[in-house]
Design a protein around this nucleic acid. Structure first.
Lengths: 228, 228
DNA sequence: ATAATAGTGTCTATGAGACAGTATAGC
DNA sequence: GCTATACTGTCTCATAGACACTATTAT
């Protein structure tokens, strides 16, 4: 029994009105690949604190709203998109992470292919934009603990690229293998051998029958992800 | 602008007193290996809701307390232990997960070797005990969404056993290789070949010089984890 | 023909997996 | 000696990695 709460709290009678509650928000890491770089969607703040700095988009969690629903709502608001890949990443609970009041933030990762976002980002709010993660981490102008969040997100994506198929989330429904390989190379930060790469993904894809035309070289085949 | 919160909430002026806030708790999955089984620490509830059912221990997060600190406090209260392995697992935000009021729960995994817990669990509260995860998942008497949490925790531990060294957390500082191999076999749910297992861990360990005596067979050497 | 990129065949090195054998304690 | 478990040597096989080669388009 102390300033922090009731003990043991979930097994005995309690009155939550006695204790001050934190706010709970969801912060979004919306990643895409554009111009051969991994980019993240950020907003330039026009209010204190951290005025003029870049921040991740976020929403407060409604009292009758799940965390996933809050994340989906935020993604829809920022990109106009639904039905894209999303997963919970980590929950950030440093006491002073927001200087105004106590806010606990559940961060979510969303992966979008650049084509579907090309005509949505920037329409609603001009301060919204896609920033290359290398550039944005170089610049010191990042609000709150969002730099840490971005680093955490990049690490998560790189890890999962090695043992899952999340890289497919960055390409459109129909894609070429050179295109998909480039995504892997960007995410992993190293170049790959064509043969080995193709062997690794060949069970995951099927030809569409179409070919990419118009380039001054042998045309590449279009593939789609095979649904398992 | 709706019942759920302010939009965009972290980039504009807002007044959090206008919106009802959830309570935030930390729930603990304290795992150990005892009698050649993976066990989890649970508490039998003596109050509604879910009276008489088993629940994971948890604490509310204080308004001036980080999530990690809340988890450490809970672990100390339940086991008397400090300095053990702990990591954040997942945050649970279903609206009706606690029928009394909205509670968002950040779950943490802690791994303890049975020896250090043998004389602490059960002293403070007689309803606290270690339960084999297979048994507890069979029985339907689990409170809240804690069954899901346990399943999630087991999956996390099994995954990380394959690509990290968390299995070492379940053995004391000095251990034999048959003992460590047994831990791996319990966590992975399959038997391993001695030679291959030893090859895999040989760079992670060093001999202490001591031997295990008293058994009617060749004595095994004691090892410790080599600090990297 | 040339340049540029797409796509294929095959060798090698590494490591996981399997199994047979030897070693050392108590009885 | 016997039994039980600790410990070791070595073979096989799957797969990641590396590289050389062929194919097809626009100019």
């Amino acid at each position: 029994m102390n300033q922090y709460g009731i003990k043991p709290p979930l097994t005995e009678q309690y009155d939550t009105t006695l204790y001050e509650k934190p706010s709970v928000a969801v912060d979004l890491l919306i990643f895409t690949i554009e111009d051969d770089r991994l980019k993240v969607l950020m907003i330039r703040r026009d209010e204190a604190p951290y005025q003029g700095m870049l921040a991740l988009p976020g929403v407060f969690v409604g009292i009758q709203e799940t965390l996933d629903d809050a994340a989906l709502r935020g993604i829809k608001e920022e990109t106009g998109l639904t039905g894209i890949y999303m997963e919970q990443m980590y929950t950030w609970g440093q006491v002073e992470r927001d200087p105004r009041t106590r806010v606990i933030s559940v961060s979510y990762i969303a992966l979008v292919n650049a084509d579907s976002m090309r005509f949505t980002v920037g329409e609603r709010v001009s301060e919204v934009g896609l920033y290359g993660v290398e550039d944005v981490l170089q610049s010191a102008e990042i609000a709150f603990d969002h730099r840490e969040m971005i680093q955490c997100g990049i690490a998560r994506i790189q890890n999962k690229t090695e043992y899952t198929n999340i890289a497919f989330e960055f390409v459109p429904e129909e894609f070429t293998l050179p295109q998909l390989q480039k995504v892997y190379e960007i995410l992993l930060g190293k170049s790959l051998y064509k043969t080995n790469f193709r062997n690794k993904v060949k069970l995951l894809i099927e030809e569409t029958g179409a070919m990419k035309a118009g380039e001054a070289n042998r045309p590449s085949k279009y593939y789609r992800k095979v649904r398992v």
